[in-house]
Write a protein that binds this DNA or RNA. Structure first.
Length: 358
DNA sequence: GTATGCTTTCGGC
DNA sequence: TTACGGCCGAAAGCATAC
């Protein structure tokens, strides 16, 4: 089954201050460039009635809510992380196997404790929803199905506070009428490409021969689409390992092509990443930068070191060099700058020593 | 051709 | 009409080695 906490950030804010829960609540990332620049991260269902959705500019949200007593709040990740941890402890206790997906989502394999019975699985889900509600006051939506791909879609069709069960015999009729965009992995771009091929629903997709799909979308995606559309997925529910990368991105106060201004911001991002690496005693092997230009186009450049490093100046200098190269390839001014490190490796020596002697 | 590694883009939240 | 964040993982695309 897939458990998805409803409108998570906004629901957390409603718990912190229950007086707002009868109003539209909009939680946003403010870029700091102007008073209202930034985008909506999550909105509660009252705000959604006004067309306020994740990803729209704050200014758009404000104009859609201009005649209403709405609450606009900045994101508070520390608080949501804390709530998430508490939820995950409860969810994990209901699972044979557990896989945390994001801050607000998790897959649970309950096959064994439900004795392969969908009625029993449904009872488990109800109990779990009850406990999350009683202990933390949060609602969630749950999809129960024979596999992860279908469970995810099932959780999506009935929100908030939903519980949808799709048994093996019902998979075809459940999936066929849904738009291809319901499938995980089919975003806007892929959906447009499929539409152009005359594929609108999952049922349409299920009929396309595998060769065509592989030729169009590549080996992995093509065969995944084919199987997923037919309700086939044998990927296990399993614990996720350590994080593979750490990144920071931020918006410049104003668009610029001045390397000084760009590297000033880049240095800040590097320092922030570096302090995270120190905390976890990690080195990095690969450094990538991203520059988002005035037209919101994304440009990246990366470099892999010959061996892992734990030196902050390597991080800073490499990032700036990459950004300088990237800038040479671009014509428009830069709006946002980001740095990402990957190839994370445990540093051999304890941190104290590292900073003292290397 | 296969395996492998690096860079860039895409999708989800 | 426009408006516009900050993360993460995974795969495609490409190059290279054998």
């Amino acid at each position: 089954m897939l458990v998805d906490l409803d409108y998570f950030y906004a629901q957390c804010e409603e718990k912190r201050d229950p007086s707002i829960k009868e109003k539209p609540v909009v939680v946003s990332v403010y870029s700091g460039r102007t008073e209202d620049s930034g985008v909506v991260s999550t909105a509660n269902y009252i705000a959604r009635e006004y067309g306020v959705r994740s990803g729209i500019p704050i200014s758009v949200a404000k104009s859609r809510l201009r005649e209403v007593d709405a609450v606009f709040l900045p994101v508070d990740h520390a608080f949501y992380d804390e709530m998430s941890e508490k939820v995950m402890v409860i969810l994990r206790s209901y699972a044979d196997r557990f896989e945390e997906v994001g801050i607000d989502e998790a897959y649970l394999d309950v096959t064994e404790r439900a004795g392969r019975d969908y009625g029993a699985a449904t009872e488990i889900a109800r109990d779990m929803k009850g406990e999350v509600k009683a202990h933390l006051g949060l609602t969630c939506s749950i999809g129960i199905a024979p596999n992860k791909v279908v469970a995810k879609i099932a959780a999506d069709v009935n929100k908030p506070d939903g519980l949808t069960v799709v048994k093996p015999d019902a998979m075809r009729e459940f999936l066929n009428p849904l738009p291809v965009g319901s499938l995980i992995g089919v975003g806007k771009k892929t959906e447009d490409r499929m539409k152009a091929m005359g594929i609108g629903t999952i049922g349409d997709l299920a009929q396309i021969d595998e060769k065509t799909l592989i030729d169009t979308f590549g080996q992995k995606l093509g065969s995944y689409f084919r199987r997923a559309a037919n309700g086939i997925d044998d990927t296990p529910v399993q614990e996720r390992g350590e994080r593979l990368s750490v990144s920071r991105i931020s918006t410049l106060k104003e668009d610029t092509r001045d390397l000084k201004a760009i590297s000033r911001l880049s240095d800040r991002l590097c320092d922030d990443i570096y302090s995270m690496l120190i905390e976890r005693n990690l080195g990095f092997t690969s450094i990538a930068v991203v520059a988002i230009t005035r037209d919101l186009a994304v440009h990246t450049k990366s470099k892999t070191l010959e061996r892992p490093s734990d030196r902050p100046e390597i991080l800073r200098n490499t990032a700036t060099a990459l950004l300088s190269e990237l800038l040479d390839e671009l014509e428009l001014p830069v709006r946002r700058v980001g740095v990402r490190v990957s190839g994370l490796a445990k540093a051999e020596t304890p941190n104290k020593r590292l900073t003292d002697f290397t």
